[in-house]
């Protein structure tokens, strides 16, 4: 049964905030547990330098899962990321079965490895700024991601990251 608009919007916000917490905790499979089988993920940014809307990373749910499972085989920066997400808008479809949402986020890098861990570890630095543009399906009172576009303002990404944002 479709939910009323207020409850559906609450379910969407709940899913977006849970996703933030799972991503911060690097619980990748729990994060993907919030995603529909048809889920598509993309990190994008517009570059005025080359006048091109770029895709920095994209993949299906399966491809993201494969990528996560291979992470232990890769060298990576260990500094954890903290995402601060604010859901700005939730628009529920008239039939209550789907919704779209726009959220603002900033990502801080909590230095562990740093440039020189002796000096940098324990410091938090602004890493990324952008918006989440989400599409979700709503079923049995729960919202699940169909698509997430991470729209970055950044084109300077320094060491970058192996992790989804």
């Amino acid at each position: 049964m479709a939910m009323n608009g207020v409850n559906a919007a609450d379910a969407v916000r709940d899913t977006i905030y849970r996703a933030t917490m799972y991503l911060d905790a690097q619980k990748w499979e729990d994060w993907l547990g919030l995603c529909d089988e048809s889920f598509h993920y993309a990190i994008k940014s517009f570059s005025p330098e080359i006048n091109y809307d770029m895709i920095y990373l994209q993949g299906s749910r399966k491809e993201m899962l494969t990528m996560m499972r291979l992470l232990p085989k890769h060298n990576t920066d260990h500094s954890p990321l903290s995402r601060h997400t604010s859901v700005y808008t939730v628009d529920v479809a008239p039939d209550g079965k789907t919704a779209s949402a726009v959220s603002s986020f900033v990502v801080y890098q909590n230095m562990l490895d740093g440039v020189n861990a002796h000096i940098d570890a324990g410091e938090s630095r602004l890493f990324l700024v952008g918006k989440y543009i989400d599409k979700l399906t709503i079923e049995d009172g729960k919202a699940r991601f169909i698509a997430r576009e991470v729209r970055l303002e950044n084109r300077r990404l320094d060491k970058g990251s192996h992790w989804p944002i």
Binding site: Y56, L57, D77, D113, K159, S161, H162
Partner: peptide
């Protein structure tokens, strides 16, 4: 890419 498999490792190395 900045979220790709190799470049992040290269940049950690030279850092």
């Amino acid at each position: 890419g900045p979220f790709g498999r190799n470049l992040h490792e290269d940049l950690i190395g030279v850092t």
